[in-house]
Design a protein around this nucleic acid. Structure first.
Length: 122
RNA sequence: GGAGUCGGCCCGAUAAUCGCUGGCGGGUUUUCCCGCUGGAGGAAAGUCCGGGCUCCAUAGGGCAGGGUGCCAGGUAACGCCUGGGCGGCGUGAGCCGACGGAAAGUGCCGCAGAAAAUACACCGCCGAUGGUCGCAAGACACAGGUAAGGGUGAAAUGGUGCGGUAAGAGCGCACCGCGCCCCUGGUAACAGGGGUGGCAGGGUAAACCCCACUCGGAGCAAGACCAAAUAGGGGAACAUUGGUGCGGCCCGCAUCGUUCCCGGGUAGGUCGCUUGAGGUGUGUGGUGACGCACAUCCCAGAUGAAUGAUUAUCCACGACAGAACCCGGCUUACAGGCCGACUCCACCC
């Protein structure tokens, strides 16, 4: 297991934090998930989740996706340092298995690293 | 053994590692770190009822409106539960029922049918006296009588039988049903028995309605507290014989400065927030729901929102589904497993 913690300060908690990300995002995503991203002035990454009831109907499915995203983020956080990330789920995400979700997320994190880190941090 | 009924319980297990979060203790007692310990459900769901709690309203009463609706009990309360009654279903264990009032009034009753409620009778049945024909028996037609039979319908003005009659009819009688009165049992719903009346005129109250009982409104984003930045409000003091405007000038009025205080209150934060109509055990009262007594336990409390991930082993290979102020119910969803009581059928003795 790769080490790493996921403490409170590593989460986006305030509405204003979310607004900042939504305002000028660098996007990455596929048919299951969408990731929005923006640099912050800190030396660690922060994660916010926006799993809408509209798309994912049952609370159980929403919780499942949140937990898996958090776990995946926790393992990858060192390479994502300096970014604020918001994860949005689409309807099809509920149908994926655990393993599929982890795979999908891994690819998306890589995409973000390449795409966003350089272009935005200038 | 098979089929079934009712009630209760479980909801993968174990280990290791890495995480999240409440509480307690400690450390550099600020967000940080360490240790110990707790961390979703039977429905947490739908938000359909009832209550606690909070704020608002309220002299008292009535009307309107909503809800409930066999009886008794349980409960904080209920539209819930228990026991009983009545009706229906099932061979049975059992299950189901908005189950008060239709002679208080109003409305409605498709299609079919003559007629759906004041019977104005379609096919029928009878047809005396009188009329026509006939010697007569009788035939024909009419006035009229009738509701037994046929047919329609979910439903047709009590049912069966006998008497009765021109044919019929509660017209009369017997039994059943129905209404009323009395007696007996039962707290009561109701049941049983006796007497009497006379056939009284359909259904629908989840149609209006009547009767009885009952109900104030909004909800934890309730509500309470702390409180930046910025803008603005009120007050005090100081500084000025200060500046600017009105004015020819003085007086006067308006406005501008600094400091402090006050109240409202946004972002944000804290409380409400989990010890409760609580759980477990024993005893005890009660057919039971449930009550009482004693002992014992503390059992989620998050706030972008915690209970997860990985690996290994095993099996029945895991359904529906995630607390958000808290309880009591109801309803809906659901793969499977365990236990107990009982019923029916088959077999053995």
């Amino acid at each position: 297991m790769s080490p790493g913690r996921f403490a409170r300060h590593q989460r986006l908690t305030r509405p204003s934090d979310f607004k900042q990300v939504f305002a000028h995002p660098c996007k990455s995503g596929n048919q299951h998930l969408t990731l929005l991203c923006r640099t912050n002035d800190k030396d660690y990454a922060r994660l916010g989740l926006a799993i809408a009831k509209r798309y994912i109907r049952t609370a159980v499915a929403r919780n499942r996706i949140k937990r898996i995203v958090r776990e995946s983020f926790r393992q990858r956080q060192t390479t994502l340092a300096g970014l604020d990330i918001v994860v949005l789920a689409k309807t099809s995400a509920a149908a994926l298995t655990k393993q599929e979700l982890f795979l999908v997320l891994e690819r998306l994190w890589q995409g973000l690293e390449k795409k966003c880190k350089d272009s935005l941090s200038v």
